[in-house]
Simulated assay, not measured.
Amino acid sequence: MSQSSYELKAEAREQVGKGSARAVRRNGKVPAVIYGDKQPPLAIALSYKEIYYKIHGGAFLTTVATIDVDGKKIQVLPKDYQLDPVKDFPMHVDFLRVSKNTQVNVNVPVRFINEEKSPGIKRGGTLNVVRHEVEFHCPANSIPDFITVDLEGSEIGDSIHISAVELPAGVKPVIADRDFTIATIAGTAAAKSEAGEEAAAAAPASEGQ
């Protein structure tokens, strides 16, 4: 689970709209909004430098943060952000208020392990990643940093489905109506031919038993 919570200092903004947002940016800050938890939206201004490094540092949208707004501390989860299409400067951030009971939908990265223990990959097959991220429904304070897919024993032609992944307690896929594929082990023509020959060679032996 993510343990890298952090705190940001912010100033409340009385004015909103495009003109106000441009003024905030001219002053070297980033406009943002905190919403949710059945409370009115709160417009704030964040340090440009702090938010830039958080966004580009990774795991921004899966890490709960505390925002100190003029002395009042609010727990939030970043939900969305806008970057300048040319320079990647942060332009705006949306935060969701969270509490210990808040459930959220988040996209969690997939990590693959034990490629060296996959007979299919050793034979020349390749890992074909269908989903680099999976959307989960989970408690806001228990968002996984990633989910792990173990490739040990996987053969050419195998598909790894979400049911094969061990998930933390309380973490459930948003897609619940099917056992969707995360990755497959695809083979080259030569690797498939070799696998077919091995299967053919093993068949008579098994038939004779």
Rank of each mutant, 00 (worst) to 15 (best):
T62G: 05
V64S: 09
A65I: 11
T66L: 08
T66C: 07
T66K: 15
I67L: 11
D68C: 09
G71P: 03
G71Y: 09
K73M: 12
K73A: 11
L77K: 10
K79M: 13
Y81E: 01
D84I: 11
K87I: 13
K87S: 15
D88R: 15
F89K: 15
F89E: 14
M91K: 12
M91R: 06
M91W: 01
M91C: 00
H92V: 12
H92D: 07
D94N: 13
R97G: 04
V98G: 04
V98T: 10
S99H: 14
S99V: 10
K100Q: 13
N101E: 14
Q103S: 13
V104I: 15
N105T: 14
N105W: 10
V106M: 08
N107I: 01
N107D: 15
V108D: 00
V108R: 02
V110D: 01
R111S: 03
F112C: 10
F112N: 05
N114E: 10
E115P: 00
K117F: 13
S118K: 09
P119L: 12
I121C: 02
R123H: 07
G124N: 10
G125I: 12
T126A: 09
T126P: 00
T126Y: 04
L127M: 07
V130M: 14
H132E: 13
H132D: 11
V134K: 02
F136M: 15
H137Q: 10
H137E: 14
C138L: 08
P139N: 04
P139Y: 08
A140I: 06
A140K: 03
S142V: 03
S142Q: 13
P144E: 05
P144A: 11
P144I: 12
D145M: 11
F146N: 14
I147D: 01
T148S: 02
D150E: 06
D150W: 05
G153T: 06
S154P: 00
E155N: 14
E155I: 04
G157D: 01
D158L: 07
D158K: 08
S159D: 06
S159V: 05
H161G: 00
V165A: 07
L167W: 05
L167R: 03
G170E: 07
G170A: 05
V171R: 03
P173N: 08
A176H: 00
A176N: 07
A176R: 09
F180T: 05
I182S: 01
I182G: 01
I182Q: 02
A183R: 06
I185L: 07
A186D: 14
G187W: 10
S193G: 02
E194F: 10
G196L: 15
E197G: 00
E197L: 15
E197P: 00
A202W: 03
P204N: 03
P204I: 12
A205C: 00
S206Q: 12
S206K: 14
E207K: 15
